[in-house]
Amino acid sequence: MKNFNHPYHLVDYSPWPLTSAIGVLTLVSGMVKWFHNFNLNLTILGYLITLLSMYQWWRDICREGTLQGNHTILVTKGLRWGMILFITSEVFFFLSFFWAFFHSSLSPNIEVGTTWPPIGIMPFNPFQIPLLNTIILITSGITITWAHHAIMNNNFNQMKQGLLTTILLGFYFTILQGFEYIEAPFSIADSIYGSTFFMATGFHGLHVIIGSLFLLICYIRHINNHFSMNHHFGFEAAAWYWHFVDVVWLFLYISIYWWGN
């Protein structure tokens, strides 16, 4: 009876919130140990528990939505609001790094030589790899729109192609950023420049990796026919997230790589 007269999704009991909590507590304890020069065993165990919980929790959500049909229109609206609020919180997360950057760069103090970039810092040429990365991310924004239009037009193969292209561009970006980090003539310990630079671009890189994985999961779900032309919010959420990561990069490029150079 409970499932017939309302559009809400009454969730079943699930062990994953508990195992996630145990996992992240283990992880943070392991990292404290690691920071105090003990071994990595507890950190690895924490990662293992957390990753297994994440996999199984999200697997269950896919089952509830796709295979049990629990995601009515009203439930999907809730999911949309959840994603909007999550991305809003991410915007403020990055805002704090930009705040730190502009606080230090708009009136550089005596310790860094009252100049920006600070004395002795050799920043990247913004018109080499960073410009290529900008083009890669903007292109990936186009290809994900291609995939979205394909799914709305019921086109299986073009969705597959558009999504795969986006994922490959995402990994290409990550590889180029990796090379850039290896080649960098300054480190995170080199003045406030290195600190703000690697804090902002590093967290952005982490978000690109997360976004790429999110899209990869969508690709696997698409191959397994989890989506239809009006049931694909998982993909839309990934697309929103990807656009967010894209926009953050544009701000990073303009302010840190270009203006800050």
Partner: peptide
């Protein structure tokens, strides 16, 4: 892709 109505199940 699957027909939306054929693809959907449950509620």
């Amino acid at each position: 892709m699957p027909d939306p109505l054929e693809h959907a199940t449950g509620m």
